[in-house]
């Protein structure tokens, strides 16, 4: 806590409705030397849970100049077992240290017993799971003293016992816990393709009033045994054209919201990420213009 005053120049605010980028170690120096026009940076919480060293040194310096989003991948909110208190305490220290404008996690599980499975695994959408997820989110929000944004997952299988649509499940969670939602448009397209439903209809049904952030990323494409498309949420390529189109569709409902370009594997040189960020910014500003024009003519 002692260092937070100097670190958190942007604390207690909200993320700006601009494009943001995932912060990668290979770009630390580029960012400090060139101060690129990025709306915010997002870090994976677990990568900053060491005691010290370059990650914290650079994050402190970068955070002093940019709004920050902390994105957790290891809480296992969708796990039936109790949350890992040690991990939650680590997360709390991180949040206290950097006072991020936003904290988000996933509608998924990744830990069972004491094994960490290093993937965002799917949950059935039913009553008991809904109650468990809500209990966990209550606990996280209480412990961190901060609202959480919950991200819709990309999935490859579904469960026979699911008796709710994913959007209804997310809507219920947000309604019961007061958490916000992180709408990952790439995940929407990946899941919709894999489960043969319409991504546009999913976006039309999404409870947009809870959306605090959007994620965009690239997917990898494989083929299933029936010769159909099997999409993998791979974060190693530019955002696909269809995902940009869905993003524009989503913005019509959400309005301009903070939008992150996720690129976690085969991370390219910084200018490549900036190009994607500028593309997102154009879509955000088009949406702003569209809304202004609507009000002007109304």
């Amino acid at each position: 806590m002692t260092s937070s005053a100097s670190v958190a120049a942007f604390g207690l605010g909200v993320l700006p409705a601009r494009s943001g980028l995932g912060l990668k170690p290979r770009h630390y120096r580029d960012i400090l030397e060139t101060s690129p026009p990025v709306g915010f940076f997002e870090v994976h919480a677990e990568n900053y849970m060491g005691d010290g060293g370059p990650p914290h040194r650079y994050l402190e310096r970068i955070r002093a100049h940019y709004p920050l989003s902390v994105h957790g991948v290891g809480l296992s909110i969708g796990g039936d077992q109790p949350l890992d208190k040690t991990h939650l305490a680590r997360l709390r220290r991180l949040i206290e240290r950097y006072e991020p404008e936003s904290f988000s996690e996933h509608l998924a599980w990744s830990t069972h017993d004491n094994l960490y499975l290093n993937d965002l695994l799917p949950v059935p959408y039913d009553g008991p799971t809904l109650r468990r997820v809500c209990e966990h989110i209550d606990e996280v929000q209480e412990t961190l003293g901060q609202r959480l944004l919950l991200e819709n997952p990309s999935t490859y299988i579904a469960f026979e016992q699911s008796d709710m649509a994913e959007v209804d499940f997310l809507s219920e969670v947000a309604g019961r816990t007061g958490c916000g939602l992180l709408l990952d448009v790439n995940n929407v397209f990946v899941s919709a393709t894999n489960h043969a439903y319409d991504a546009g209809a999913y976006l039309d049904a999404f409870p947009v009033e809870h959306v605090g952030e959007i994620h965009l990323a690239g997917f990898a494409e494989d083929q299933d045994d029936a010769g159909g498309r099997l999409l993998i949420d791979a974060h190693g390529t530019p955002v696909a054209d269809i995902v940009w189109t869905l993003f524009e569709q989503a913005l019509k409902r959400t309005g301009p919201v903070p939008t992150l370009i996720e690129w976690d594997n085969d991370v390219p040189a910084f200018p490549v990420l900036m190009k994607e960020a500028r593309k997102a910014d154009r879509a955000l500003s088009n949406e702003r213009c569209r809304r202004q024009a609507m009000f002007a003519t109304a």
Binding site: I157, F159, L230
Partner: peptide, 25 residues
Amino acid sequence: GIRTAGLDRIDRRFDVYRNNVFVGL
């Protein structure tokens, strides 16, 4: 208790998760 859309084999889809775990680690 796992299902997939259409004709795709469940084990092929489950293998995506298996791959994610092993490739990532």
